[in-house]
Design a protein around this nucleic acid. Structure first.
Lengths: 224, 224
DNA sequence: TGAAGAAGTGAACAACTATTCAGACCGAAA
DNA sequence: TTTCGGTCTGAATAGTTGTTCACTTCTTCA
């Protein structure tokens, strides 16, 4: 009398799991990580608190998966943008711009994923998230160096610094306030991208059209 | 029958207050903000838990003062270093280097002050801390711009980005690991300072001796 | 249709710490 | 030395949330 999960049940279970994860993501996007509490998330997902624990062994695990998921999406977007660029320098510019735009369009989520205080230990998945994205940027810098567009440098450190600059300038507590205005937002993205590119040795990004060019396609994402 | 505090008592009270604050600072330097809990801090300060509340209305207030104090010290050091420099560009370099060195020599404390999760709300004092230090850097950038050494730019945003880069690269979770080795540490400080200066438009900081020059006096601080 | 096992429920529990407060202790004035 | 307000103490309190578990509901299969 073996009980076997019907295909339908398997699907329902998967859907429920993903509903819980989505609920957590929505909560984080709304109110930051502080809003990711088991009871409220359960309500959003239309399940009971106990049910969450049938899918995730602990809150730490839930948040870790949330971070991993967001991070995965981010990485995909970065790669897509960079791969579409015509050369290594503009690929780097596109990657940086993509991050800037994403981060700005979901500021609370970004802050939550990156740095917001959480009451459980999620350092491991935050570390992984940073490592993945920083690694991607480092690779793009490396490409530009190899192509002779940038001076040789410690690319890993440069990538990390670049991300730190982006995040602090765009979602940190000192970030400019009126970024809801699309024009200002584009300005901020441009300015910060320019700073970042100059830091790694790009000399005249604006003149060469790297920044503006990279900004244009990404701009659409803000509306979405 | 007016009870008046003797001068001696006043002094003892002040000493005790400062002992509590120091204990909190030590705890933070040892184990980050997580270690700043009322009971352990009280033990370090040789008082009972309740006594802490005769000096600080809440844990939030205690930590806020801690942040303000560290921030004040930091600002003083930055100003001293910058004011001792011969010109605006090297003043900027000196300021940046000073921050880098300080942050590295007290990594846990820096991380705690800046970004570590805390269970009480200290956003206001963190914001103030950032604003003060970022403001100082912005002013130094401004000086260099006015002197014609740097291109015109949004100095506030640049300063914020610069600090973000410093922090992420030096105390963030992706910071290089073997910074206990003094040589590596100096390398990291140099590299990151260079990046930061390039970002704001300094073209050949290393060639012009800005970075090395600024590093040398600050190096002594690491030992202290 | 019914038996057996899986999944879902939500109120109760547990653990962690900031905070309180009634009483002990200390120091200043008489 | 006595009195009395200020100061200190630390065990008890309180509030917050993650987590559990006895029970209900649903699903599979004979």
């Amino acid at each position: 009398m073996v009980y076997r999960r019907t295909h339908q049940v398997v699907k329902r279970l998967a859907a429920r799991r993903s509903a819980i994860l989505s609920a957590a993501r929505d909560a984080a996007a709304d109110g930051g990580m502080a809003a990711v509490q088991i009871a409220p998330v359960a309500v959003r997902a239309n399940v009971a608190a106990g049910t969450v624990y049938r899918y995730f062994p602990s809150k730490a695990e839930l948040i870790s998966e949330l971070i991993a998921e967001v991070s995965r999406d981010e990485l995909t977007a970065i790669r897509r943008a960079a791969d579409a660029a015509p050369g290594p320098s503009s690929a780097l510019a596109a990657a940086v711009t993509t991050i800037a735009v994403h981060v700005l369009s979901q500021r609370k989520l970004a802050w939550g994923i990156l740095a917001e205080p959480v009451d459980v230990d999620v350092t491991a998945s935050r570390l992984a998230s940073r490592r993945d994205i920083s690694g991607e940027i480092a690779a793009r810098i490396d490409n530009a160096v190899r192509a002779g567009h940038l001076p040789a440098q410690d690319t890993a450190l440069a990538a990390t610094a670049l991300l730190g600059a982006l995040h602090e300038a765009l979602v940190g507590p000192l970030a400019p306030s009126n970024l809801d205005d699309p024009a200002r937002l584009r300005d901020a993205v441009q300015t910060v991208t320019l700073l970042g590119l100059r830091a790694v040795g790009v000399m005249d990004a604006r003149a060469r059209g790297l920044v503006v060019q990279a900004t244009t396609p990404a701009k659409a994402l803000v509306g979405a």
